[in-house]
Structure formats: structure tokens, C-alpha cells
Amino acid sequence: MSKNDFNPRILGFLCNWCCYAAADSAGVSRYQYPPNLRTIRVMCTGRLDAAFVLRGFAEGADGIFTGG
């Protein structure tokens, strides 16, 4: 597999107040970014249990993104 073929599946946990809001603004400003992220909104990244991250990998995520 060459570097260019790598098409990772990324799972993201986004804080409602900052990162989720920022993702909204990115949309409003029409910033374009790669479509590899799938997101879960939480009210704060403090909500993240390590188990969520592990489960994400177990479900086939190539990477976990947290934004808060």
C-alpha cells in the first residue's frame, strides 16, 4: 500500500462548546478538509472515558481524534 492510498477511518469526540462549534464555523467559512472523520458530540471532552477510545479502536478506527 502506497502512502497515497491510505484512507484512514477516524473517530472524533468533539466538545459541544469549542471543537464542535469550531467545526460548525469551518462549515460556515466553507473550509475544505478530508472527509475521513466521523464525529460524536459530547458536552465536554471531560466526558471521555478511556474505554470509549479503546472501543473506537476495537471497532476499526485507524485513529481517534478528541477536540476540546
Binding site: 478538509y33 466521523r38 464525529t39
Partner: peptide, 25 residues
Amino acid sequence: VNIRDHCSWVHANEPEAATRKSMDL
């Protein structure tokens, strides 16, 4: 489910990938 701000608006040039992402979300 946010398929506008997080999808159609930010993947405007990749309609197929945006549709797949929408389905996943």
C-alpha cells in the same frame, strides 16, 4: 445529525465521500 456544517459545506468537491460520511453519521 449535522450533514451540512460538517459535511456538505466542508466536502463540497467530494460529493460521493460527503454522501458516505452523511450515511455514517
